[in-house]
Amino acid sequence: MLHDIFIAPFADMIAAPDFLMQVLWEGLVSGILYALIALGFVLIYRSSRIFNFAQGIMVVFAALTLVGLHAMGVPAWISVVLTLAVMFGLAVAIERVVLRPLVGQPDIILFMATIGITLFLIGFGEIIFGGENKVMITEELGIPTGSWTLEPFGGLLILEQKDVTAVAVAAMLVVGLLVFLNRTQMGRAIRALGDDSQAALSVGISLRTIWVLVWFIAGIIALVTGIAWGARAGVSFALEVIAYKALPVLMLGGLESIAGAIIGGLMIGVLEKLFEIYWGQPLLGGNTETWFAFVLALIVLLFRPQGLFGERIIERV
């Protein structure tokens, strides 16, 4: 038993380093998508104190819209542009109908409202697009679907080209967001908002504009993750679960930390994959990815309540 837990998995890793690399790669692909979604959460949280539970359904909604538009005969790239327009419309609608009337309410109320948005979009999406699994328009978007085969350590490592594309696009989006947050006035206002709303307002950008903007950014992130994940698993409401994975990332990285979201996302993507392959499947009957990230985050927080990157705060009275 102890041998199975503490020795055998590592022996397996050493015995087949190419397979280990494959596992790490798969983890990395998931991880970067988790990081991206977590980043969307963080932006919204920093700028409005809203814990946006609707992020997951936005992924589904964006993917469904894209696929649905294409099915109606709209060319692929125009569908992307139209989907972005829809996500922008959604951001405006949410700001107008939900956020503005609820401004100043306690955190939990705003959180509940995002659950309301989630339900509304689920029902709406089902009615418009139907709930059956659809195929992502991967090829139509010009995403390569082949794979590269590498031979590290004389073994075999297969990199799906669509995964490589996903990683590249997600990484570019992350970098783009970082540049936006650090280099533009609007971006700095968003960051300042997390620390002090007065400072942000003094920049001269209205809070509403910022809200629409961060929700639109969350919409763009949703579309990118929707395409990337949809290309691997198809487009259905089950996609929502990948947004759940961003939650333990936030626990580890902190609700307000941009760096935490990125590092935490990659960490969780890789660790949950390693655990599943080397411990979950042989010892626990598999499918541990549903809970591993949550339990890991929980255990870390028991010992470091401030999260991995947060500073210890002593409460004041």
Binding site: P101, Q105, I115, G116, F120, I122, F124, E126
Partner: peptide, 17 residues
Amino acid sequence: EHLNTMIVGALIIFFLI
């Protein structure tokens, strides 16, 4: 059923407001 989901979602937001 889907209409129901949508209405419940809208109701939640409505009530919160």
